[in-house]
Design a protein around this nucleic acid. Structure first.
Lengths: 189, 189
DNA sequence: GTCTATATGGTGATAGAC
DNA sequence: GTCTATCACCATATAGAC
């Protein structure tokens, strides 16, 4: 188990606070207090509040991009690719529940990296849509409401960070199977 | 068409700004500037920034509670009740896209009304869960993963405010039918 | 209904001692 | 690596003139 550097400690503490109140409502004094030090001391490890947000969001966004690239390059059936996307979201979300809150809710407070983030997100959604499209072409997926399907799946997957920490003794493999099943087959008997 | 009072004008302008940057990041100067007046002038119409947030969130939360009460009291089949819940979310979200952002993302900044809001939300989720449970008992809904189904449907419905404004020429009746279909029957062929 | 002026306190960040 | 002290600025909100 690699031990956290002081900088990583600051970043994960910040992510936790950002999840509770959002980036703008968390002050450097709040963060310092949660670490048991004074605000000025934070600046020995990080260069600015903005820098913390950047690290949290961009590293997560790039994880999704990398995961999607792997899924895309496979020759699996579309429905299997969709199951892999579900797995990707569950894995990343469960490993960084706090950071996912910033990725979802505080991206608009990015400064230098805003456009880069928006491009990553846009490309990710496009790749997701293309997999659904292929599923329609190969007769695996219903040929109706492509955008509604994409919106529904993405909304659910993006909310996992809110839901995962509320379930105790959660088996991630089981969750992936169950959630894939609900998203693909619906809820009716 | 009822014309907006100055107070209502302030509240709907605030909701728009809150959606873009979140409650904490919007200053009274931002809000005043968007209205074309000075910050001090706002206080002739509203008593505090907090008061604006309270009005936006509580009125929406109560709308959902009222809608759910109507749906619950009917004798319709469970799947029909679920379709009505979808319709309820689409109707409220499309009428108040900006306010829905605060309801979803800024509720933690409520002060006096925080507990009241949490109770409304908790009761709403409970009612939703009970409808699904009844659907299982009446053999309309698969008897598996109740919590996963609830989470998935609620996540999608709570994200409608992000998605509705991106679609031009959106027919709400059609969206309700299509979204219900995707949520109930899934996406596979 | 809006303004200017102002009170009071919080904000991110830096300098320099230990 | 942390501290105290401090800077320059921004926050919500009020008082009182027009």
């Amino acid at each position: 188990m690699k031990q956290e550097t002081r900088k990583e400690e600051i970043i994960s503490t910040a992510a936790k606070l950002f999840k509770e109140k959002g980036y703008s409502a968390v002050t450097m004094r709040d963060l310092a207090s949660a670490m048991g030090i004074k605000a000025a001391s934070l600046y020995n490890h990080i260069s600015s509040k903005q820098d913390i947000l950047k690290v949290i969001i961009i590293s997560l966004a790039e994880s999704f991009t990398e995961g999607m690239a792997v899924i895309q390059s496979s020759n699996d059936l579309c429905l299997d690719k969709l199951r892999q996307i579900v797995k990707l979201h569950i894995t990343i979300s469960s490993q960084n529940v706090y950071g996912m809150a910033s990725l979802n809710n505080d991206w608009m407070h990015l400064e230098e990296q805003l456009e880069y983030y928006l491009k990553l997100r846009h490309d990710y959604e496009n790749d997701f849509r293309n997999i659904l499209k292929q599923g329609i072409d190969s007769n695996e997926v219903i040929d109706k409401n492509l955008d509604v399907m994409l919106f529904s799946m993405l909304s659910t997957l993006r909310s996992l960070y809110l839901w995962i920490p509320k379930k105790e003794d959660l088996n991630l493999e089981e969750l992936a199977a169950n959630l894939s099943n609900v998203l693909i087959n619906g809820i009716n008997k």
